[in-house]
Nucleic acid binder design. Structure first.
Length: 848
RNA sequence: GCGAGCGUGGUGGAAUAGGUAGACACGCCAGACUUAAAAUCUGUUGGCCGUAUGGCCGUGGGGGUUCAAGUCCCCCCGCUCGCACCA
C-alpha cells in the first residue's frame, strides 16, 4: 500500500492546472458569470494563516461555482502603497518600492503552493504606475465634476507618522498605525465629497440583504442620519456682528425646557471673545483636552459663562445664559446647542454643576413628574410647555418646527455624522495627486497624456517628513495650462483610495482606460466578497462611494452601482500563547519550542514549566504565530486548507491546534488509503443489491449536504458531512464498481476544499480529465427518500421508544403501531392515553 | 451609555419550520495487530443512581406558553465585538 505524499502530488497538480490554464477567466456572454473576491493583501512580507483561511474560503466558493457551470472570475493582487514600506525604507536603508516588490514576490511564492484557483494573469499591485496612473485619471475626472475639492481644515495630525489621518483612522484618539496621540492642526487638504452621497449610501444599505446585519448597522451608525431643527436665538450682549446664535437640535419638542445655550470653544463667537484672557485660556484648555475616548470619558463637563444671553423664541421675557462648553463639538451641527437639562444627560450634568434650572417638559406619568438625577429620554407627552402641552414628542416636534419656520428664524433639517473624506497624505509611498500649483492659473490638473505622474525613484528617507517636498526636479514643473514655472502637489492619496476600486480594475486589468465598460458590465458586481470585519466601515464605505463616483464620471456602468452583492466577514485564526518569567520580564515562546502536556506546557529545550496563556489572535509580539509555510512543508496544502475550514463556523474565530492539523492530515491519508484499497480490491467481491443501494443513497445524501453546506457558507458542516460519508463508505460492503463510483463523487465533493488529493483520487478511480474541471455531481432527489422511516415515540414528551414504519403509512395505522409498542403498553398500564399526537414522518407523543 | 452578537459534554462545534439534544471532529479510556512503539483498525465516552431491564437530571440562571422548548415570550447573569460628549 502506498502512502500519500503531498510534497510530490501537490506541485504536480498545480503544474497541470497552470499548463491547462484552467483558472484563466475570459468574458463569455453566453455563460453566466460569478465573481468571487477576497480582500487583497498588504505585502507585508509573509502570508499568515489568516490569509490562508480567507483565500481558502474564496477558493472553495470559486471552485464550487466553476463546477456548477459558472464562468468564474477569481483574481488576486496587492494593496501595495502605505506607511510600512517607508518605515522599512528608513530602517533598512532601502527603497519602499524595492521592499514592496520583494515582499510581493515572496508572498506569491508562499501562496502558489496552496493551490488556489486564481487567475494570476490579472494580477497587479496598486503601486504599479499602470494602476495608479488610471487612478490619477479618475481623480482629474472627479475633480472636474465637483466630487473633489480643497479646503482648509482642522485635521487629525499624527505626529509620529507625520501625516494627516481621516476621522476613521483615529482610534481612541490615537493614530491607527502609529498609536500616537493625534494632534489637531490646520492644513489645506484634498477632500472627496462623500457627503453628497450620505443619504444614498444609507438608503442603499437596505438593498444589500447578503451583507451581514452587523456591518450594515455599523455603516448606518457611521453615516449617522438625524432629523432636527436648525434655528436662531436672538443674542443679547454679544460682540458686533453676532446678533443671533444658530443652534441645531433633534429635540425641538423640549424647547420649553431650555435653560441655557452652549457653544464650542472653536465657535466663531467663542473666538471673538478671546480678547478676554479668561476666555482665551478656557478655549485653549478645551482644545488641548484631546479627542481620546479615555480623556473624554473622564473629562468633566466644564463651561464658562460668557455673560451673554439668548431670548427664548416663544417667550420674549425669558433670557438664558450662554456658556462656552467643552462638550460641544464644532464640526457637528452648528457648533452651538441649547441645553435642556431635564431630557439630556449631558445637559443635566452641566446644569447641576452650574446651578441652572431643570425644567421637566416630557412625562410618561402625568403633569406632576419631575426629573431627578437622571435625564428622562423616553417617550411621553409634553408638559409645562404652553401650546405644546398634551402633545406627543413627535407631534410637538412638528408643531415647533412649523412655528419656527413660520417666523423665519429656522427650518427643519437633516444632518449626517459622515464627514467628507480627507485624502491628502504627506507621504512618499502613495499615489501622487496629479495637480500642479501655478501662481497665475491656480490649481491645474495634469494633462491626461502626461499620466501617470510617476513617483521619483531617487529619494531618501534620512529625514522625517515627505521626501517629495524636497525633491526639486520632480517638484518644479511647468504649468500644464500657461507653461510658466509651477510646483507639483506633493501630497499623495490615502491608500484607501487605491483599495476603493481595485475590484473594478480586475475586470480589465490592462485596459488603457481605468475600466473597460463592456468587461465591467459583464463581470460586476462582485458576487461574493470575503474579508475581515475590521474593514466593516472604512474600506467598504469608501468602495461604495467610489462605485457611485466612478459611475458619475463614466467609469462604471449603471448596473455596477454597488461593488459587492454579498459580503462575508470571516473570523480570525487564534492560538494560545506560551510565556515564562525571566528576570521579572515576560518571555514568549513559539509553539515549536513548546511541548504541550495534558495540564500545561514545558520548554522543549530545557524541560522548564511554562505558562499557557489564553487563546488570542496570532501576533508576532506574543510569538503565537503558526507559519503556513511550515504547515505546508509538514503536511501539505490540502491539510492546511481542510483544517482551516473544519470545525469552526467561518464567521467565528478558529483556534489553531497541532492536534487539529494532525487530524486533518490523518483524514487526507485515510482518503488516500481507501482509494488505494478500492482500486486494488478484487472486482468480483461479494455484494448485495441492498448494499449497493445503501451506498448510492449515502452518496446522494452527501451530494445534497455538501452542496447546501458550501452554498450556505457552512463549510464546517460540509466537512462534517464528508467525514460521515467517509465513515459510511469505509464500512460499506458494496462491490468494487459501486465503491469506485462513490469515491469519484467523494473526489468531486472534496475538490473545492482539498483539490490536490481530489485530483489524485479522481485519477486513481478512473475519472475523466481533471476533477477541477469536472461538473458538480448531479443530485437525484429520489435517492434522498427512504421507504421506511424510524419514528421516535415519546411518552409525556420524553423519548422512550421508536418504531420503524413505511414512509407513507396512514396516521391511523401509525397510531395503532405506537399503541402496540412495548414501552407504551407498559407506561399505559391498561389505561387509555389522554392524548395521542402523531406528526407524520417526524414523531409520536403519547400523553398519559 | 447606545447598538449587535454569543452562552450546548473534558474541547471545537451539530441540531430546516418548536418534534430523538450532543451529528462530525479532537481528547480520554478499553481492545485488536506488534517483541515493543508508531501507524492503523474496533469499541466506549453528558452527569447521577442501578448488576441489568430501567430511572432521574441536563443546552448560563429564573419564570411562562405548548402534547412537545437549545429553538418562542418575559425577567436576570456573564462574555465578545462595534460606536460613543453627534445635541
Amino acid at each position: 500500500m502506498s502512502r500519500y505524499n503531498a510534497r510530490v502530488t501537490e506541485p504536480k497538480w498545480q503544474k497541470a492546472w497552470d499548463d491547462a490554464q484552467v483558472f484563466k477567466a475570459e468574458r463569455d456572454d453566453s455563460l453566466e458569470k460569478y465573481y468571487v473576491l477576497e480582500m487583497f493583501p498588504y505585502p507585508s512580507g509573509r502570508i499568515h494563516i489568516g490569509h490562508v483561511r480567507n483565500y481558502t474560503m474564496g477558493d472553495v466558493v470559486a471552485r464550487f461555482k466553476t463546477a456548477r457551470g459558472y464562468n468564474v472570475l477569481h483574481p488576486m493582487g496587492w494593496d501595495a502603497f502605505g506607511m510600512p514600506a517607508e518605515n522599512a525604507a528608513m530602517e533598512h536603508n532601502t527603497h519602499p518600492g524595492t521592499w514592496t516588490r520583494q515582499n510581493i514576490a515572496a508572498m506569491k511564492e508562499q501562496m502558489k503552493p496552496l493551490g488556489f484557483s486564481l487567475d494570476w494573469s490579472r494580477e497587479f499591485a496598486t503601486c504599479d504606475p499602470e494602476y495608479y496612473g488610471k487612478q490619477q485619471a479618475m481623480f482629474i475626472d472627479m475633480l472636474e465634476v465637483g466630487l473633489i475639492y480643497r479646503k482648509n481644515a482642522v485635521v487629525n495630525w499624527d505626529p509620529v507618522d507625520m501625516t494627516v489621518l481621516a476621522n476613521e483612522q483615529v482610534i481612541d484618539g490615537k493614530g491607527w498605525r502609529s498609536n500616537a496621540p493625534v494632534e489637531r492642526k490646520e492644513l489645506t487638504q484634498w477632500f472627496f465629497k462623500i457627503s453628497d452621497y450620505s443619504d444614498e449610501l444609507l438608503e442603499a444599505l437596505d438593498h444589500l440583504p447578503n451583507w451581514p446585519e452587523k456591518v450594515r448597522t455599523m455603516q448606518k451608525n457611521w453615516i449617522g442620519k438625524s432629523q432636527g431643527l436648525q434655528f436662531s436665538f436672538d443674542l443679547n450682549g454679544a460682540p458686533d456682528g453676532f446678533d443671533a446664535l444658530e443652534v441645531y437640535t433633534t429635540r425641538p419638542d423640549t424647547i420649553f425646557g431650555a435653560s441655557f445655550a452652549a457653544i464650542s470653544a472653536d465657535h466663531p463667537l467663542a473666538k471673538a471673545l478671546e480678547s478676554d484672557p479668561k476666555v482665551a485660556t478656557f478655549n485653549a484648555d478645551c482644545r488641548r483636552m484631546g479627542t481620546s475616548a479615555e480623556a473624554m470619558e473622564k473629562a468633566e463637563k466644564i463651561g464658562l459663562d460668557t455673560g451673554m444671553t439668548i431670548t427664548h423664541p416663544f417667550d420674549p421675557d425669558l433670557k438664558m445664559p450662554v456658556y462656552i462648553a467643552n462638550f460641544v463639538l464644532m464640526d457637528y451641527g452648528t457648533g452651538a446647542i441649547f441645553g435642556c437639562p431635564a431630557h439630556d444627560q449631558r445637559d443635566l450634568d452641566f446644569a447641576h454643576k452650574y446651578g441652572l434650572e431643570v425644567k421637566t417638559v416630557v412625562s410618561a406619568t402625568g403633569p406632576d413628574y419631575e426629573v431627578g438625577t437622571e435625564a428622562f429620554v423616553d417617550a411621553g407627552s409634553i408638559i409645562n410647555s404652553d401650546f405644546l402641552n398634551g402633545l406627543s414628542i413627535d407631534e410637538a416636534k412638528v408643531e415647533v418646527i412649523s412655528r419656527i419656520e413660520a417666523v423665519g428664524s429656522g427650518k427643519g433639517v437633516t444632518k449626517f455624522r459622515l464627514r467628507d473624506w480627507g485624502i491628502s497624505r504627506q507621504r512618499y509611498w502613495g499615489c501622487p495627486i496629479p495637480v500642479v500649483h501655478c501662481d497665475t492659473c491656480g490649481i491645474v490638473p495634469e494633462k491626461k497624456e502626461n499620466l501617470p505622474v510617476k513617483l521619483p525613484e531617487d529619494v531618501t528617507f534620512d529625514r522625517p517628513g515627505n521626501p517629495l517636498d524636497r525633491h526639486e526636479t520632480w517638484r518644479n514643473v511647468d504649468c500644464p495650462k500657461c507653461g510658466a514655472a509651477a510646483k507639483r502637489e506633493t501630497d499623495t492619496m490615502d491608500t484607501f483610495v487605491d483599495s476603493s476600486w481595485y475590484y473594478a480594475r480586475f475586470t480589465s486589468p490592462h485596459a488603457e482606460s481605468p475600466t473597460d465598460l463592456a468587461e465591467a458590465e459583464y463581470w460586476l458586481n462582485v458576487d461574493q466578497y470575503i474579508g475581515g470585519i475590521e474593514h466593516a466601515i472604512l474600506h467598504l464605505l469608501y468602495s461604495r462611494f467610489f462605485a457611485r463616483a466612478m459611475q458619475k464620471t463614466g467609469h462604471l456602468p449603471k448596473s455596477a452601482i454597488e461593488p459587492f452583492n454579498a459580503l462575508f466577514t470571516q473570523g480570525m485564526v487564534t492560538h494560545e500563547f506560551y510565556a515564562s518569567e525571566v528576570n521579572n520580564r515576560t518571555v514568549y515562546h513559539h509553539p515549536s519550542e513548546v511541548i504541550r502536556t495534558s495540564h500545561g506546557a514545558t520548554l522543549r529545550s530545557t524541560g522548564e514549566e511554562i505558562t499557557v496563556g489564553p487563546i488570542i489572535k496570532m501576533s508576532k509580539s506574543k510569538k503565537n504565530v503558526v507559519d503556513p509555510e511550515d504547515i505546508i512543508d509538514q503536511y501539505g496544502a490540502d491539510t492546511a486548507r481542510w483544517f482551516v475550514m473544519s470545525d469552526s463556523p467561518p464567521e467565528r474565530d478558529v483556534e489553531w491546534t497541532s492536534a487539529g492539523a494532525e487530524a486533518a492530515w490523518k483524514h487526507i491519508q485515510r482518503i488516500w488509503r481507501m482509494a488505494d484499497e478500492i482500486s486494488q480490491s478484487a472486482s468480483d467481491g461479494v455484494t448485495t443489491p441492498d448494499e449497493a443501494l445503501a451506498l448510492l443513497k449515502a452518496t446522494h445524501r452527501a451530494i445534497d449536504d455538501v452542496t447546501k453546506g458550501i452554498e450556505g457558507f457552512a463549510f464546517n458542516k460540509a466537512i462534517a458531512k464528508l467525514y460521515e460519508f467517509t465513515n459510511t463508505l469505509q464500512k460499506s460492503k458494496a462491490g468494487k464498481a459501486d465503491k469506485q463510483a462513490a469515491m469519484l463523487v467523494m473526489a468531486q465533493l472534496m475538490q473545492p476544499m482539498t483539490p490536490h488529493i481530489a485530483e489524485e483520487v479522481w485519477a486513481l478511480m478512473g475519472g475523466k480529465g481533471m476533477v477541477t474541471t469536472a461538473p458538480w455531481p448531479t443530485l437525484d432527489p429520489a435517492m434522498l427518500i427512504d421507504d421506511t422511516i424510524t419514528m421516535p415515540i415519546q411518552i409525556n414528551g420524553k423519548r422512550r421508544s421508536e418504531i420503524k414504519v413505511a414512509k407513507d403509512l396512514p396516521k391511523s395505522e401509525v397510531e395503532k403501531l405506537a399503541l402496540a409498542d412495548e414501552a407504551v403498553i407498559r407506561a399505559l398500564a391498561g389505561n387509555a392515553p389522554k392524548k395521542l399526537i402523531v406528526v407524520p414522518g417526524r414523531i409520536i407523543n403519547v400523553v398519559i
